[in-house]
Simulated scan of single mutants.
Amino acid sequence: MHHRFGYQRVLEDIDLCVQAGQAVALVGPSGCGKSTLLNLAAGLLSPWEGRIDSSFGQAAMMFQQPRLLPWKRTLDNIALGLKARRTPIAERQTRARQLAHRMGLDDDALDKFPAALSGGMQSRAALARAFAVSPDLLLLDEAFAALDIGLKSELYGLLARERAAAGSAVLMITHDLMEALRLADRILVMSGSPGRIVAQHRVATPVGERDDAWVFARTAEFIRWPDIRAAFALPPLAAT
Rank of each mutant, 00 (worst) to 15 (best):
M1S: 14
H3C: 09
R4E: 07
G6H: 03
R9T: 06
R9F: 00
D15E: 12
L16Q: 02
C17V: 14
Q19S: 10
A20K: 12
A20Q: 15
A25M: 06
L26C: 14
L26W: 02
P29N: 11
S30H: 04
S30Y: 04
S30P: 06
S30R: 03
C32T: 06
K34M: 02
S35I: 05
L38K: 04
N39R: 15
A41V: 13
A42I: 08
A42H: 02
G43R: 06
S46A: 15
S46E: 14
P47R: 06
E49Y: 04
G50E: 07
R51Q: 14
I52K: 01
S54A: 07
S54K: 08
G57S: 15
M61F: 06
M62S: 08
F63P: 04
F63Y: 13
P66S: 12
L69V: 12
P70N: 10
R73L: 00
L75H: 01
D76R: 10
D76Q: 13
A79F: 06
L80W: 07
L80R: 04
G81L: 03
A84N: 10
R85Q: 15
R86S: 14
R86P: 03
P88T: 07
P88R: 04
I89R: 15
A90C: 11
A90H: 10
A100M: 09
H101G: 05
M103L: 15
D108Y: 01
D108W: 05
L110C: 13
D111G: 15
K112P: 02
P114A: 11
A115W: 03
A116T: 09
L117P: 02
L117C: 12
G119N: 09
M121T: 07
S123Q: 15
A125P: 13
A126S: 15
R129N: 05
A132V: 08
A132W: 02
A132L: 05
V133C: 11
S134N: 15
S134C: 10
D136N: 14
D136K: 06
L138E: 05
D141A: 10
D141F: 06
D141Y: 09
E142V: 08
A143M: 07
F144K: 02
A145T: 12
A145R: 09
A146K: 01
L147C: 09
L147A: 08
D148E: 10
D148R: 03
I149P: 00
L151R: 12
S153D: 12
L155G: 04
G157Y: 00
L158M: 09
R161I: 03
A165C: 08
A166I: 07
S168G: 05
S168N: 08
M172W: 10
I173L: 15
D176S: 13
L177I: 14
E179Q: 12
A180P: 01
R182Y: 01
A184I: 07
R186V: 11
V189Q: 11
V189N: 08
S191G: 13
G192F: 09
S193R: 15
G195Q: 06
I197Q: 03
I197C: 01
I197P: 00
V198A: 11
A199L: 01
A199W: 10
H201V: 11
V203H: 04
V203L: 11
P206T: 09
E209I: 12
R210I: 03
R210D: 06
A213M: 11
V215Q: 10
V215L: 05
F216N: 15
A217G: 12
A217C: 13
R218T: 07
T219M: 08
F222Q: 04
P226Q: 07
P226K: 09
I228N: 03
A231K: 12
A231R: 03
A231I: 10
L237V: 10
